[in-house]
Design a protein around this nucleic acid. Structure first.
Lengths: 251, 251
DNA sequence: GCCGCTGTTGCGTTCTCTGCAACGACGAGT
DNA sequence: ACTCGTCGTTGCAGAGAACGCAACAGCGGC
């Protein structure tokens, strides 16, 4: 709809890969470098980009500022923090907090593993809907029609031998997750990693986010992973309480 | 330079405050709501904003994605992580990592305090040049002419009774910081908080970033703060080594 | 010192973007 | 139940902004 803005945003995306020169940017966007120069100037004036040296542009500090100011506004993140940190301290493994926003599942917080073997992820990254434990937890909270709608919109890209690859199988899995109160990712996303996730609930019992623990298989086998479930559920419960959840209220 | 882009960025800034409607945005930017609508559509297509409900827009997930992808690319942050985490575990206080970028000092990482009394800050926030320990460390690394240039450009807003309020005093402080190898913020920014900071150096001995420990005065008095310095310096040294610093090389 | 590369500027044209006004959807109030 | 008001949305036409071109400048390398 807005050409210049559209181009500018595309350029930002290109810059996320690393510092770029005017010409590189111009080529990747398919526009004249003069155009890029002017867009960059505007972006620079808002601190969305900054110049590394005379020729290289990189993403600027306004982005961090905006992103974190917005994250800061999310009550779940702040409220859940102590519980998640505790789980991270206790297990030493990577702990994630993810939420469902606008059709996608996004990691909104992360506590790094203390081990040397770690999974790669980062805040802001999108999680695949069909092969991550957090996504299963979040989607499982929806009512049947919505679940079906989502299940049918997924592109079931197989990531490992265990990846769920069909809508019926996914719906069955969601039902199981809703039933037992936590979700597993049994190396469905990456061969070397498996996860467990549980819901964090708010005042009205609705699912606000999902907590997960991700562990490399070399550190903990499947039984070991399952053994983490009680701690995970305790954490999720604690986080839910911090978010105003009332355990007595049954709905 | 680019009107539409400029407006769009201004709107993003307004959205950082919280979800807004079209009309609110239109008014705050002083443009017609039609214009806002079109910009929002473009921003939405790039996932820079998303619709909360029918009428409210909020910042979208692309921002977190970009911001963190970019942060991820910063070697200092990744390399310094284990050392900072250790310091955080050891002391239990808030640990910050900040760097100087494009004329300003920005927090690029943060490890939360374990105590209930905490300072408010966040990744992406800009630190005042004249009254924070991290800024002093970073600016103290520059050569004399640049220091002076910066010192004279600062607006010395007094934050507390201890805030440095003149360029000569600031320059003297920088000299002291460079001399002793760490910087103090003796409640110069906020009455209830004091900090110590030290430089993290890279291969050529240049200062890449500053580590700081921030402590509420109710938890630790001035002498207690000073007692943290050896741990801080040890951490900074460890982080520097991880960044390729060579202690034998003297320059 | 010359050549090539890259960022920068002035300018004229074109097409994008803007604001207006009218429409439609939704809720509140009577 | 009806109307009014509010807010998002669309079509349109004029205006001005953004675009690309071509020429210039600054820098480093062969």
């Amino acid at each position: 709809m807005s050409q210049s803005l559209d181009r500018a945003l595309t350029l930002l995306d290109a810059l996320a890969e690393g510092p770029r020169t005017l010409d590189q940017l111009a080529e990747s966007a398919g526009v004249h470098k003069t155009t890029v120069l002017r867009l960059m100037r505007t972006l620079e004036s808002h601190r969305f980009v900054q110049r590394d040296d005379a020729r290289h542009y990189r993403l600027g500090t306004a982005l961090f500022d905006l992103a974190n100011r917005s994250l800061d506004g999310r009550d779940v993140r702040r409220s859940a923090e102590p519980a998640l940190r505790e789980l991270n301290d206790l297990t030493g493994h990577t702990v994630h907090l993810a939420s469902y926003e606008g059709g996608e599942v996004v990691y909104i917080d992360k506590y790094e593993s203390r081990h040397h073997v770690r999974m790669y992820s980062r805040i802001g990254k999108r999680a695949a809907l069909h092969c991550t434990a957090v996504a299963k937890v979040l989607v499982a909270d929806f009512a049947e029609p919505r679940r079906r709608e989502i299940a049918e919109s997924i592109d079931y890209v197989p990531m490992t031998a265990n990846t769920i690859t069909s809508a019926p199988a996914y719906l069955a899995e969601l039902a199981a997750v809703a039933e037992r109160g936590y979700a597993l990712d049994n190396s469905e996303h990456e061969d070397f990693i498996h996860c467990v996730a549980a819901p964090v609930r708010g005042q009205r019992g609705e699912v606000l986010a999902a907590v997960s623990v991700s562990v490399p298989k070399v550190l903990l086998d499947y039984d070991g992973l399952i053994a983490l479930v009680p701690d995970l559920l305790r954490t999720a419960r604690k986080a839910s309480l911090a978010c105003g959840w009332n355990p007595d209220r049954e709905d």
